[in-house]
Amino acid sequence: MPAPSSANGPSLAFEAVTKRYDGGTMAVDHVSAEIDAGSFIALVGSSGSGKSTLLKTINRLVEPSEGRVLIAGEPVASTEPHRLRRSIGYVFQNIGLFPHMTVAENIAIALRLDGERETADRVADLLDLVDLPREFAGRMPDALSGGQQQRVGVARALAARPGLMLMDEPFGALDPVTRDQLGAAFRRLHDRLGLTTIMVTHDMAEALLLADRVLVMQAGRLVADATPRALLAGEGGEEADALVAVPRAQADRLRALEGRA
């Protein structure tokens, strides 16, 4: 899928997307939302709220029981899963680097699936993009730290020049410092490459600081949809307020500590 490096990401739409499991559990309950091309969306909710399931309906790792997902007006169900996924970057908490392949082979895997042979230059560019030294190309994944591994994960997801990035708790397993650095670095990449990004997180502070727009899910339903500014102003509704209250209270307590010192 050749596209210019400053590709504009596609728009996205959920139309009454529902996922019901065999036991009768509703993981996602009639979610509808329109997402503009090039926006950075945070999908926030507590564990089990259905946010990851909703995200995976986009690249068909989960097939909805009802409703549909459209990318740039095109239903995802009309493309074969493996073709669809090659046009979408996917980064998730457990990273999933292939342990038997070098960093370079991991990054180039999507290119190799498309039959490309000459991948060395592209791998070097991608390593630059995620701020890793080029000599990492020949290393094995287990020789890297967690943060470095997730940078490789991001590079792998970007290799095929996707317009759309799906990130499932991408920085959840990293230490706070690395997490903050990587979050900010990725936001810069998002802007530079003109991506459309949907990031699942349970951390409201991260969502507020990185995203243009925050969707809040609870028990499979979309309960709030607002900009970070609006959420902080208390315009997101009851459930969103409860989530925003946590980082706010922490910030207040930290300030109080500083004041005392």
Binding site: L61, R83, R85, F92, G96, A110
Partner: peptide
Amino acid sequence: LDPAIVEAADGVGMTSWQ
């Protein structure tokens, strides 16, 4: 097999045979 590795293989768009 680590489920994350299988998920990554699906995620990058491998067919079942790949």
